[in-house]
């Protein structure tokens, strides 16, 4: 059975007095124990919204208007705020983009770690400090004992993000949701942090939802991939299968637009236009105005996600596709 099962999730925001617009328009996903899932899309595609919705963190005036989120058999959307705290930050942890915003600048690393542990476990401060040092060592922070008394500004960006990961690991979660965890970091530091997250997931059989716009990062870290566009999942499947042989025209366009995938001196492939805002979605398939394969049917009706692809004219998997 899946550890986390999201079915037909809709998130809506009010627009004017009597109308609503949907930021998520029916997204489903399932995550097995120890599985690493990547969610890729451009800004505004709804990928962060999905992460927030899973943790029941959609802020007013937004609301989950439809759907279910089942974690370990319980529907998170029907739980009380008190009960969900036993799961959020405990059995499901989150790593955000900017460690300088995640960490409290006026408290030491140690205080923040002990506080997190005590919120979820009945343990002594001494024991909490011991566990904190253990986790700091796990994320390869040099001289972990002395770093416990450091303030966030005393650490470099890479070390700060390692501290954030250590805090996320404190309660030995079953799922980690990482929302663009390395976007604010340099490439060499990004490689360190992603290698660390990958190793931790493997060693501890932890499931990962990695939200990013970087196809290279998902290729390195995840096993399964979801491509999102305008509040919907347009393609879903094994990461390497999608990267080698995308079947949705949008996934194909994203991959072809990468400088790595084109010859030097030739123009890059470009998807015309840009993603529509959720307040002005076109009729039918949201991608049709930018799609080179769009037909009359795409203008009128929207394709459902069937066998991991939401398109009336999917591309043929070419010769590169694995059997």
């Amino acid at each position: 059975m899946a550890l986390l099962e999201v079915t037909d999730l809709h998130v809506a925001f009010p627009r004017g007095k009597h109308h609503e617009v949907e930021a998520l328009r029916g997204v489903s996903l399932s995550l097995k124990k120890g599985e690493r899932l990547g969610i890729v899309g451009e800004s505004g595609a709804g990928k962060s919204m999905l992460a927030f919705a899973i943790l029941n963190l959609i802020a007013e005036p937004g609301r989950v208007s439809q759907g279910a989120i089942r974690f370990d058999g319980q529907n998170l959307l029907e739980m009380s705020e008190h009960d969900i705290r036993g799961i959020r930050g405990n059995r499901i942890s989150m790593i955000f983009q900017d460690p300088m915003v995640t960490l409290n600048p006026v408290l030491t690393i140690g205080t923040q770690m002990v506080e997190t542990l005590k919120a979820h476990r009945k343990i002594s401060t001494h024991e909490a400090r011991r566990l904190s040092i253990e986790k700091l060592k796990l994320v390869a922070i040099p001289s972990a004992e002395s770093r416990l008394d450091a303030y966030p500004h005393e650490l470099s960006g890479g070390l700060r993000q390692r501290v954030v990961i250590a805090i996320a690991l404190l309660t030995d979660p079953e799922i980690i949701i990482a929302d663009e965890p390395t976007t604010a970091l340099d490439v060499t530091i990004q490689a360190e942090i992603m290698a660390l997250i990958l190793q931790l997931c493997r060693d501890r059989d932890m499931a990962l939802i990695l939200i990013t716009h970087d196809l290279g990062v998902v290729a390195e870290v995840t096993e399964r991939l979801m491509i999102m566009y305008a509040g919907l999942c347009v393609e879903e499947g094994p990461t390497q299968r999608i990267i080698n042989a995308p079947t949705h025209p949008y996934s194909n366009g994203l991959l072809k637009a990468l400088p790595q995938n084109s010859e030097r001196g030739q123009d890059l492939y470009q998807i015309p236009g840009s993603m529509p805002p959720i307040t002005a979605l076109p009729s039918g398939c949201a991608y049709h105005p930018r799609c080179e394969f769009a037909t009359e049917r795409c203008h009128v009706s929207a394709p459902d996600l069937v066998n991991g692809i939401a398109c009336f004219h999917p591309l043929k998997a070419d010769a590169k596709a694995p059997a």
Partner: peptide
């Protein structure tokens, strides 16, 4: 440090 589409380098 560049993530590769083929994976495996992390």
């Amino acid at each position: 440090a560049i993530p590769k589409l083929t994976g495996g380098s992390f």
